[in-house]
């Protein structure tokens, strides 16, 4: 045994089957969202109806897991009703916490449902102790999901200065370092990641493999990348694209590379830094992904808590482009 505090393992679910897979694989909490723009993962064919959410809450409750509802996009002017309705449905379903990003939504929850536990979404982009304290004071936020721009040392410093719990991403997609503020999809497709909840909407994505098996990926009118035959591919997002520019002879990743976050080796450091909850990204991924990743992290956390060196399962085959990084958590090395 050791002096580490047991962290909560927070896992993604894009469908009811994924929710059950996450719970069965050892999730302490599962997060999900509705099939509309209130949800920052508002992808086609994904997410929960109110009835599915209720069934999910029951299943999670029976197995001792919590259910967290992400209402984490930003309502455009005049469209607040949809967000209000989502909050009301979530509270009436009995979700354990609502994850919000918008101050108006946070205020609505706090005013209408004063007992409802609130978490601050990564989409809020609260990266300083001052900003987090403001949310805590104004909306009684109980937990903040930190943006993926901080080192472990910075997380520790923030932890010492805020009155709420910290949730940190440990695995999954890692995108442009401007969470809640990225407008690249909006620029290219006219659909807003932050207000419509969709990054690179599938309806505007086109894949084309030529006779030499080179794969071209397009979003709207823009070519995002061209992968040679046999080369690992990435998501069709602008921030992970490879571009031709005037000052380079070869196409290059101008923003970010196709790569996934994997902090398995930093788990003890994160736990010592005061991280209460470890978050796995991937509501758009399959139940096979959920089962594998949640199972691997469940085992790693249990090993650490028992004082055993964690046996880290190989997760590289589930990462974007078959590449993984510790991102900013291991130290900032931005270009």
């Amino acid at each position: 045994m050791n002096d580490l505090t047991r962290p909560e393992l927070v896992c993604p679910a894009g469908t009811p089957a994924s929710l059950r897979a996450a719970v069965d694989a050892g999730a302490d909490a599962v997060y999900c969202g509705f099939q509309n723009a209130t949800n920052a993962r508002n992808f086609a064919g994904l997410n929960f109806t109110p009835d599915e959410l209720a069934e999910g809450a029951e299943y999670a409750g029976q197995k001792g897991a919590k259910l967290l509802l992400a209402i984490n996009s930003f309502p455009p002017a005049g469209k607040f009703d949809l967000w209000r309705q989502a909050v009301d449905t979530g509270v009436q379903t009995g979700v354990d916490a609502i994850i919000v990003a918008d101050m108006g939504v946070a205020d609505y929850v706090r005013t209408r449902w004063p007992e409802q536990r609130l978490h601050l979404s990564v989409q809020a982009g609260a990266s300083s102790a001052e900003a987090i304290r403001f949310y805590c004071q104004e909306f009684d936020i109980k937990r903040v999901v930190l943006p993926r721009i901080l080192t472990v040392a910075e997380i520790k410093a923030i932890h010492d200065e805020i009155p709420c719990e910290i949730e940190a991403f440990v695995f999954g997609n890692i995108g442009m370092m401007a969470e809640g503020r990225c407008s690249l999809t909006n620029y290219v497709t006219g659909v807003s990641t932050n207000m419509d909840g969709v990054c690179s909407p599938a309806g505007r994505v086109e894949y084309k493999e030529d006779t030499q098996k080179n794969l071209t990926t397009r979003l709207g009118d823009f070519t995002v990348d061209c992968f040679a035959c046999g080369e690992n591919a990435g998501y069709p997002t602008i921030c992970k694209g490879r571009y031709l520019t005037e000052d380079r002879r070869e196409p290059y990743y101008a923003f970010e590379e196709p790569v996934s976050l994997n902090l398995t080796s930093l788990l003890p450091d994160l736990m010592k830094a005061g991280v209460t909850a470890l978050k796995i990204e991937g509501r758009q991924r399959s139940r096979a992904y959920v089962k594998s990743v949640v199972g691997a992290f469940r085992k790693a956390v249990d090993d650490l808590m028992a004082g055993r060196p964690p046996e880290l399962t190989e997760l590289l085959n589930l990462t974007e482009g078959n590449k993984q990084t510790e991102g900013a958590f291991g130290g900032k090395r931005w270009r």
């Binding site: 089957a17 897979a21 894949y207 493999e209 098996k213 794969l215 992968f227 046999g230 080369e231 690992n232 591919a233 990435g234 998501y235 196709p258 758009q284 991924r285 399959s286 139940r287 096979a288 992904y289 089962k291 594998s292 085959n317 589930l318 990462t319 974007e320 482009g321 078959n322």
Partner: peptide, 15 residues
């Protein structure tokens, strides 16, 4: 549900 579609796409096993 034994294999992840995104991972198969990344590895070019799925077109």
């Amino acid at each position: 549900g034994n294999l992840d579609g995104d991972a198969l796409f990344f590895s070019r096993d799925l077109i």
